[in-house]
Design a protein around this nucleic acid. Structure first.
Lengths: 332, 332
DNA sequence: TCGGTTTGTGAATACGTATGTATTCCATGA
DNA sequence: TCATGGAATACATACGTATTCACAAACCGA
């Protein structure tokens, strides 16, 4: 059934190693032989077996990408450019969406079926990085990392982004401010909250725990958080959300509750997904270059696979920018 | 670096084949030996090499999934359940997003690096299926197919869904009806349009080409179509959209143009993505079971790989259901 | 013309697992 | 006591490619 390099060799009247070399444009084979071999390969529709090559070279040209929930609108915008960049670097992408770290690590990541791994949904308490480290499997963090030194990571200046938002809200006169932050075991959640808090504190504005919600970076987190925040004695005049998806949950909840945005409530997101600029939202948010974030992660991983990397770790940080649209206003 | 079954064999004091059999729970190895081997494997943190296994068994336990644009909100809802079902069937997923069919086929699909392929974005003029067929690579269509006999496909009753919408619109008194359909080279586009047209014709309602737009199943298609439709002499009172993503484009365009939905315009989608029920949209649409659609495709592919399938082709069709929400109203 | 170099190719082998076949060991029964 | 059969394990090999090493031929300068 399958056509092998031996079949090509027979047809071309050469040995199998010569076929291997000719098709890989090894300069040691003569022009004439090379062409003869290529014609034979063409005639037989020969495609080298990836398994044979992998076994021989010990490289799979395959990279795993780990994500928890693909249906979250955030991840496709990471995965698409990641795929394209990996592809142009000669790697293929294995998508792994998994709930539990442990199961993933044992079977799927350590069987030498990929050359490296991109962790797009790492939590600070995950044991996965340590397992990968122990087995010598190259990996990089994308968007989130562990926050520890020595990481290889492509991330955003989350703290700076949080600061930007705090300053804007203060400048708009907001004093009763709420936060719907990401989960506490994610660096994206923690750092955005941290930057936001620090800049608020500098301006002398408090952020009591009663006006803080933390949860997964999901639509439902925002959708359920708003009613809770509105029940407080003094409802907030502004909400900073952990990311755009959460903010969109808040916007929908506001519509359901009859709360006018931005007249009654200012809502700010983070990420600037394409969706944020849809007419129905016109979400004021914090932009960073999601494409470049992903590409950078791909290139970093490939460099790490090639061991062309600073052994002390590399942390590539992209800047953020405030994007005013239509969900913010002066405090009333 | 890598630990092999030979290392385990040495430690356990048995031969390599015995290790292979013991770990795979082959009944021919004794209980005592099995345990001895498993302890040794455990002690060494042995994980069988996937490449070696593949070469030996000629099966990769890997499946490719081909999609054009992952950032389209539709696809994650297909890919996530597909991944999970494949995973529970013991297969891993390689994600391939590609523009041109040709490049994909040559290198990536035919190198025996996967056991089968799911085509999620096939067009009726694609040459890819024929290439896969010729090389004996098992494949199934998901959502879209070629429309030809002999396909293996998991699809939706698109024509029936189109009919449902037409009947509802007619019953609501609409006569000036528009359609923003999917691309003409997709069966999803064609069949939905066909069903819609047929049921309209049965009711004596026309659908002139001036009120028809066709394009990719994307946000922009809907967003750009609406202004064009509104410029016509008599603006339509209702628009049936090829899918929810297109419908959401139309809804946003309506908001931008100051067109009130549903008072001035009825908008109907197709798919019932989670997004369709968001407060900002409350989109009236046609539901089908997207999870089951994907799972069914996974199971069909695995059966085809196992050659446990009707050689004449199998076409699994899921039913549709009209979901009334807030974007439809009686014609004025 | 000859030793030495370069060039091109083939033979042998490694990679890690699974499997078909051979072998060993032991128990059983006549 | 020895043949027989079954259980458990070892041996040999296949899978397809890439690479190391050896070898032959061609080429070069002295």
């Amino acid at each position: 059934m399958g056509i092998t390099s031996h079949d090509v060799a027979r047809l071309a009247g050469v040995s199998q190693p010569t076929v291997s070399r000719a098709l890989r444009d090894d300069p040691r084979v003569s022009q004439a032989t090379r062409e003869k071999v290529k014609r034979a390969a063409q005639a037989l529709n020969y495609v080298p077996s990836e398994a044979g090559r992998t076994l021989s070279t010990r490289a799979t040209r395959r990279v795993g990408v780990i994500v928890t929930d693909l249906t979250n609108p955030f991840y496709p915008h990471v995965i698409a450019p990641l795929h394209d960049e990996l592809s142009s670097l000669g790697y293929r992408m294995m998508l792994i969406t998994e709930r539990s770290d442990e199961a993933v690590a044992e079977e799927k990541l350590l069987d030498q079926s990929m050359d490296g791994v991109v962790l797009a949904t790492a939590t600070t308490d995950s044991r996965l990085p340590a397992q990968l480290e122990r087995r010598g499997m190259p990996y990089v963090f994308l968007n989130r990392d562990t926050g520890r030194a020595g990481d290889f990571a492509s991330v955003v200046d989350n703290e700076g982004g949080g600061r930007l938002v705090a300053r804007e809200l203060v400048a708009l006169g907001h004093r009763r401010i709420a936060g719907v932050f990401g989960a506490a075991n994610t660096t994206t959640g923690r750092e955005r909250e941290m930057g936001f808090r620090l800049a608020l504190a500098e301006a002398g504005v408090g952020l009591p725990e009663g006006r803080v919600v933390r949860g997964a970076f999901e639509y439902d987190t925002g959708y359920r958080a708003l009613p809770a925040l509105l029940e407080a004695d003094e409802a907030p005049t502004a909400v900073f959300c952990g990311n755009d998806v959460v903010a969109i949950g808040v916007l929908n909840a506001a519509l359901a509750a009859g709360v006018k945005v931005p007249d009654d409530l200012t809502v700010i997101g983070f990420d600037d997904l394409p969706m944020a600029s849809w007419e129905v939202f016109r979400l004021t948010t914090v932009r960073h270059d999601l494409r470049e974030l992903s590409r950078q992660a791909a290139r970093l991983l490939v460099r790490r696979i090639a061991k062309d990397v600073d052994p002390a770790g590399e942390r590539l940080v992209l800047p953020t920018e405030f994007v005013p649209r239509a969900t913010h206003a002066r405090a009333h």
